[in-house]
Design a binder for these strands. Structure first.
Lengths: 335, 335
DNA sequence: CTCAGCCGTTAAAACGTTTCAACATCGAGG
DNA sequence: CCTCGATGTTGAAACGTTTTAACGGCTGAG
């Protein structure tokens, strides 16, 4: 182990007091140029690296934000993270990403650690917003892409019911009357909301609720989408939906792939609508119709809200964005 | 601001000394059950959260690893990160992800911060391995997916020259004699290595070096792949390659999309091979032939190497994995 | 020659933990 | 009744910074 050179070593080496070294580090303008040079030289020579723990202990505040992400492998969240980072960076803060990987246990561990680290603030897309007890522990927390049930935090979300409605209304207008909803588990608020939106669209169009076949999946990954595709094709053709609304682009991509493999064409045999409009949605060989969420803006807004928590007159706010339908080839009008 | 309850407050509230509280926290078995209960109750009641800065300052060590990732939006890196996290977690450490987004400036800032934070270790896929001066600053650093030029660090990489060779040999064996290499910028070591592998494949087959048309891109994202596709189609058909080897799956997906949009078929009009074998490669509507790298294992190995740096007899090691070709529909044999 | 004011520097006191040696208390063994 | 070891608890000293108030030296005004 290195002997770990500290501020006092530098001070001694430069023939000044530690206070002066500290000043060079934090308020260079206050110390005489000659001294400053001498100190900087000593720092360089000894390879001194400031100890952030000590600094933070004394100062009481840190310079980092953290975003506990639900699934780092989902491009949607990395896009949100980009927005967060931009905003953080403008405020002179760094961003640490933590991946809960949809695991409540990991999520709790990370939250605990972040609280103990006294980060400036925590952004989180929680595994489960209901059971989520982000008890006020001194560190401000903002929920991302989830609505908070109790009013204990700020939150930034997108209207998922509206999103579901947009998607399914589009399918109905394209001539579909038997529609599948692919997504799950239904314990996830988002999935439920999007389904409810789908049902609302049916109601608006005067279609019966059983025009929607719900195929519940165990998760929101590509593989689940493939599985759903097989289930779908297995249905008797009289009852088989002619269109599918997926809770997620990953599911939609899996579904798409499964269709092609089974020799069915999209959108002719099955129209597909996804959700999130991740970059790969447009890049799919059958470009995917999808419900776009303002991803970067979601992150950016969340970060700004988080930073405003320090204002003395802060009140928790709940921002809700509107999603937008992006029509592409995967849902071309039915002939 | 909260008055911030500390260990002494807990101690006072429970009628014990701070040393005892500390013991309850760190070595519960050493303190009498009755006292322990009392202390735990006090902790609960006051909402005490341990201050990691102070703890770390005193203990000299932290419980986190960091991975500075080149591009969080590239699924390849999130897969590597998963491997890192698994290994870290087994060792009882948490993982913070930092995204340099291919920006040397950000990378430097993050490194600086992480050094100051005295994290247990740093994993990094650097923007530029050559100029990379990760001067020994006391915190161990391991390079991921890059070979280190000087022997100052451990590194874990994959044989990119071999990967390029595998890809292009496959294309040659499928009957192609005019091949494009899509990727860039060439300042990136990986891109160069993969190109060199491609050239080696040509040489092995007795083909001239100009059988390879290098289309250099500005980056490794999907959009760049689309751009390359347009350039490719613009070539006079006598000189147009019948196959493309992309430095990256993102490029390949963009290229694929561009082909379909322009009414060309894959693989009939253009065979495509990607690199990394990210999940979306298999999920593309024309499943993508790709060079697979052992992503999770890459991360896992890097983390283990990092953790071994504390051994007194540690020597820097350079692990190099072999890539593997995964053939799918996008490169079916030419008729 | 004195004094006020300024500038650059410093000693010392925090910040909230962990750790170590020392200290009580108690029951058992002599 | 004394000693000993075991068991639980504690006071105080670190850890490496930042900060505050005070200090000494100088300059220029009176």
């Amino acid at each position: 182990m290195k002997p770990s050179v500290g501020i006092r070593d530098v001070a001694q080496h430069a023939g000044v007091s530690n206070a002066t070294v500290s000043n060079v580090l934090n308020r260079p303008e206050v110390v005489a140029p000659a001294t400053r040079q001498r100190v900087l030289a000593a720092i360089e020579e000894l390879g001194f690296v400031r100890n952030e723990s000590a600094r933070q202990l004394r100062a009481g505040r840190s310079r980092v934000l953290a975003y506990v992400v639900l699934d780092a492998a989902n491009p949607f969240f990395t896009d949100v993270a980009r927005g967060v980072e931009d905003a953080a960076r403008e405020a002179g803060l760094a961003l640490f990403l933590c991946n809960s990987a949809s695991d409540g246990g990991r999520e709790r561990e990370y939250l605990e650690l972040l609280h103990e680290q006294r980060v400036e603030g925590i952004l989180i897309t929680p595994v489960d917003a209901e059971s989520a007890q982000f008890a006020e522990r001194g560190t401000p927390v903002v929920l991302v892409d989830r609505e908070t049930t109790n009013g204990a935090h700020c939150s930034v979300a997108v209207d998922d019911v509206l999103g579901g409605e947009l998607a399914v209304t589009h399918l109905i207008e394209s001539g579909h009357t038997r529609i599948a909803m692919v997504g799950g588990p239904l314990s996830i608020q988002q999935v439920r909301d999007r389904r409810d939106g789908a049902l609302r669209a049916l109601a608006n169009a005067g279609l019966p609720a059983d025009a929607l076949t719900v195929l519940e999946t165990k998760g929101l990954q590509v593989a689940e989408g493939r599985g759903a595709g097989e289930r779908l094709v297995g249905l008797p053709s009289s009852r088989r939906p002619t269109a599918a609304f997926c809770a997620n682009d990953l599911l939609a991509l899996g579904l798409l792939q499964s269709m092609t493999q089974q020799g069915l064409r999209v959108p002719d045999d099955l129209a597909v609508v996804g959700y999130d409009d991740i970059e790969f949605a447009a890049a799919a060989a059958v470009p995917l119709t999808s419900v776009r969420q303002p991803r970067e803006q979601l992150g950016r807004t969340a970060a700004q809200l988080l930073l405003s928590e320090n204002d003395p007159d802060h009140e928790h706010r709940h921002v809700k964005f509107k999603p937008e339908l992006v029509v592409r080839a995967s849902s071309a009008v039915k002939r």
